[in-house]
Write a protein that binds this DNA or RNA. Structure first.
Lengths: 253, 253
DNA sequence: GGAATAGTGTCTATTAGACAGTATGTC
DNA sequence: GACATACTGTCTAATAGACACTATTCC
C-alpha cells in the first residue's frame, strides 16, 4: 500500500502563500480508533504513552493512555491512510483490513507543544486471535471496555475524539451493516444480531432482524454451518465489496 | 469565533517523535465547498487562481479553477474551522452560517510542491442577495452549475474532492433535512420540495413529502404567508438547533 | 368563474415488530 | 424424549406513495 513519494520538493521559504507566515507549520498527526467486541462488550484499543524522562516538554502526556497514532512522516507515508495503517502496525502489531475516516481535529490548544491537527480514522475488527504487541514509544497496549475508556482522562483531546467516534458508531449501527466487520469472515445471523444488541444496548426481534439483513442483500450463504449442542446455524459471509450497506430504515423498537 | 492561540511553542528541532524526520512537515490547507441552488440548478462556488508570473513553481495551477481555500495560518487561525471560514471570507467575501466537515485528503502527490493535506468543509447556503467579491490571490469568483463544474479540470485533486462532496450531498438529501439550508430563513413547503427535487433529479409526491417533513418536527410555522397570484402558502422556518434532522426512512420512489 | 398553486383525505401496498410455532441438532 | 437454539409463519399496526379532491387566493 505504501509507495515512495515522487514529488519535487520546493524549499519552504519559496512557497508562495497569501498567508503572511506559511512557514509556521502546524503539527500533523494521524490517530486510529479500533473497536472490537470482546466477551460480549464493546472495547476500544488504547496505548499507554511511554515515559521518557527529561522529554516532558517535547513528548507530552507521558504515561497517559491515548489513541493509537503519531506524527505523519512525509518520507515514509504515501498518504494519510498509509500513515494511520503504519502507526497502527508499529505501535500495536495490528493490521486493519480497512479504515474509515472519522473526522479531523485541529486547533491551537489541543497539543501543548504547538498548533496541531490530527486526521482520525476508525475501524471495527474481530478481536479473536489477534496478537497485540507494544511497539515504538508505547509502554502498554490493551483493549479497554468502552464504559471504562470513556472515564479515563486520555492524552490530548483524545477523550473528546473517542466520544465523537462512539457517537458515529452508535448512529451507524442503526442504519448500516457496518457492525458485521466486528465478526470473523464467517458468522451466523444470531451472532450478528448479538453484536447489534451489544452496541445498541437493547434487544432486537429475531424475525425482523433476519428479514432486514437478508433483504439488504449484503451476505452470502457460506458452505458450512456452525455446530453446537443444538440445531446447527447457517454461516454467512459479507458479499465482496459490501462492507457497509445502508438499510432503507432505522430500527424502530 | 477566532481567539488568539495561547500555546507555548516548543522549537521544532526539540519535538520528540518516534518518526525519524518530524521536521519534514507536510503542507496543511483547508478547502470549502459551497453549494447553492440558483435558477433551479445546483451550483458550486469556485475561484480562479491568480496569475503570478515567475511564481509557477511556488504557486502552482495558476489560472485554474479551484475550491475556495488556502494554507493554514497558525498565527491567525484558532482552529481548522476558523481557517476555513477565514479563507472563505478573504477570497469570496462570503460568510457561511455553518460548516460541515466533509473529509481530509492527503498524500505525497496531490500538490506539486510537496506532501500536502487538506481538510475539506462543505456548506449549503441560500445564494440570493449574496455579494461575491474576488479576494486575495483570486482572479475571479463565480458560481458554476454543477454539471459544468464536474467537467472542469480543477487545480490539485479538487475535481476528485468535488465528486466526493457531491456524492455526500446526494446521499444526505435522501435521509436528512440538510437541504433546507439552501433556502432563506423562511420558506414554503413547496419551495423546500423543489429543492429536494432539484438535487435528487426526480419528482416527489407532494402529500408524502409534506407528511414527512412535518412529522420530522424540524420546522416551525412562521407568522407570514407567501403571497402570489394564487392561494398564499404558509411560511416555515427551521427550528432552532435542528439544521440536520435525520428522517427514519429514505425516500422510496 | 377561471387559473393557479396550497393543502387534505382516502386507499393500497409494503413492511417492521410481536410472538407463537416448527425444525433440527446434541445429550 | 428433553433441551437448546435455529428458523419460519401469521397477524397487526404504521406509514409511504398514489392520486383525487378541496381550499384560497388573484385576476
Amino acid at each position: 500500500m505504501s509507495s515512495k513519494p515522487k514529488t519535487r520538493t520546493v524549499p519552504e521559504e519559496t512557497i508562495y502563500s497569501d498567508a503572511p507566515s506559511a512557514a509556521l507549520h502546524p503539527l500533523l498527526s494521524v490517530d486510529t480508533i479500533i473497536f472490537s467486541v470482546i466477551g460480549g462488550r464493546l472495547n476500544v484499543l488504547l496505548v499507554k504513552r511511554a515515559f521518557i524522562p527529561g522529554k516532558e516538554l517535547s513528548y507530552p502526556f507521558q504515561g497517559k493512555w491515548a489513541l493509537v497514532g503519531g506524527l505523519l512522516d512525509t518520507k515514509r507515508d504515501a498518504s494519510l491512510e498509509d500513515a494511520a495503517l503504519r502507526r497502527l502496525l508499529e505501535k500495536t502489531n495490528l493490521r486493519s483490513p480497512y479504515l474509515e475516516q472519522l473526522q479531523s481535529f485541529g486547533n491551537a490548544l489541543r497539543d501543548p507543544r504547538k498548533w496541531a491537527a490530527t486526521v482520525v480514522y476508525f475501524a471495527l475488527i474481530a478481536a479473536e486471535g489477534l496478537q497485540l504487541q507494544s511497539g515504538t514509544s508505547v509502554e502498554e497496549v490493551r483493549w479497554w471496555p468502552i464504559d471504562d475508556a470513556v472515564k479515563l482522562k486520555l492524552a490530548f483531546d483524545h477523550s473528546h475524539i473517542l466520544e465523537v467516534a462512539l457517537h458515529r458508531l452508535r448512529s451507524k449501527v442503526e442504519y448500516t451493516t457496518l457492525p458485521a466487520n466486528l465478526l470473523p469472515a464467517e458468522f451466523t445471523l444470531s451472532e450478528l444480531q448479538a453484536i447489534y444488541e451489544i452496541i445498541l444496548g437493547r434487544s432486537l426481534d429475531k424475525s425482523s432482524f433476519r428479514k432486514r439483513v437478508l433483504s439488504a442483500d449484503f451476505v452470502d450463504e457460506a458452505r458450512n454451518v456452525r455446530k453446537g449442542p443444538n440445531r446447527p446455524a447457517q454461516l454467512y459471509r459479507i458479499k465482496p465489496g459490501r462492507n457497509a450497506v445502508v438499510f432503507p430504515r432505522t430500527f424502530y423498537s
